[in-house]
Amino acid sequence: MLKVLAACGNGMGSSLIIKMKIEKVLKDMGLDCEVHHASVGQAKSDARNFDLVLVSHMLVKEFSNSGKAKIIGLINLLSEQEIRDKVEAALKS
């Protein structure tokens, strides 16, 4: 099972939206996943427990120390196409 974390400034609005989009996209891709959402502050200390971390591209640099987790920066948090492309690329690498 893929463990995914969605993060944004307060961990309230944007991350919840990405979370719902990710759940939909990964389900469409046929992947079993568990998606959590959190604020950047909490996500930083938690990132190493996840496989993927999705955040706005401007916050990617916050996650310099996140172990094996792959950090994905999104420009449009609501674009299923962008999430799908970037998740696919990250899982391949």
Binding site: N10, G13, I75
Partner: peptide, 25 residues
């Protein structure tokens, strides 16, 4: 959202302001 997706297909979602931040970092 589940309820609204069932009731209203084409509505534009009104979401958190921080979603715009990525477009103008």
């Amino acid at each position: 959202q589940g309820i609204s997706d069932k009731l209203l297909k084409g509505a534009v979602p009104a979401v958190d302001c921080a979603v715009t931040f990525g477009f103008s970092p």
